[in-house]
Amino acid sequence: MSFLQPLISGILTGGVYALAGIGMSLVFGVMNISNFAHGDLMMLGMYLAFFSFTLLHIDPYISLVLIIPIAFMFGYMMEKVFINRVIHHPHQNQILLTVGLGLIMSNTALLAFTSDPKILTTTYSSSAFNLFGDISVSVPLLLSFLITCLITVILYLFLSKTATGMALRATSQNREAAQLMGINVAKMSAIAFGIGTALAATAGALIAPTYYIHPLAGHSFLLKAFTICVLGGLGSVVGAGVGGIIIGVVEAMSSTYLSSDWKDVIVFVIFLAVLLFRPQGLFGKKGGQ
């Protein structure tokens, strides 16, 4: 089998991982909180895409227009009601809170949607086309990747050009100094959490057409998003983007050349190796907190 096949499918899947990682990294950067509910927010995104397809007959990619603002508001409110209460507390309190919120979400989903996996089948779900003769490219994965690129570019422009985006970066680089500039850091935290949630839900919606949708789907993605953040350097948005692609490629390579049972093992070996040898991550500048 060609070496290019796992490389290309790895990059395409990695793009969606990157989106999940970027959301987590942004929240960590601005709020210094590791959001352990991130995977469950992705799961909610999957169900949102599923129900807008089955009930409202909206294509999962088009439904992002609805999912992104809904998820943003959800995250914004979640920060206002819960997360901001622990923002100056020790990390273990923050972990307990976000793990707890995640459990509430996944168990509510279990009650409401049962543990039967759901499948979102669109007309193009299993369609693919051939590149260079023998490399098959999945249409939904390619679409997801392109949408991811678009969203990443928009996010980049937002963070580097707009006043709110710059204020978010300032808060992430020095919270106290940001306050002294007249930036409302509490509001920035809520916005960051809203964006993080919107990115998680978007990643969920993007993988919904190619993945089993079930209430506990978020857990494996949480670990991936966390690995990506550590790999890229916690708080680094660019690092998370690159980290996502790397993890996607590593997974695809190990499934092809070893076996798909080994892909998670390889990913976590990388995770541990990064923690041991380069704890600040590939792009990180701050020391690990």
Binding site: A167, R169, A170, Q173, E176, A177, A178, I183, K285
Partner: peptide
């Protein structure tokens, strides 16, 4: 407490 990953002008704009 300047913003380390912003340029001089960006720091001033903040």
């Amino acid at each position: 407490k300047i913003f380390p990953e912003m340029t001089v002008v960006e720091n001033l704009m903040m």
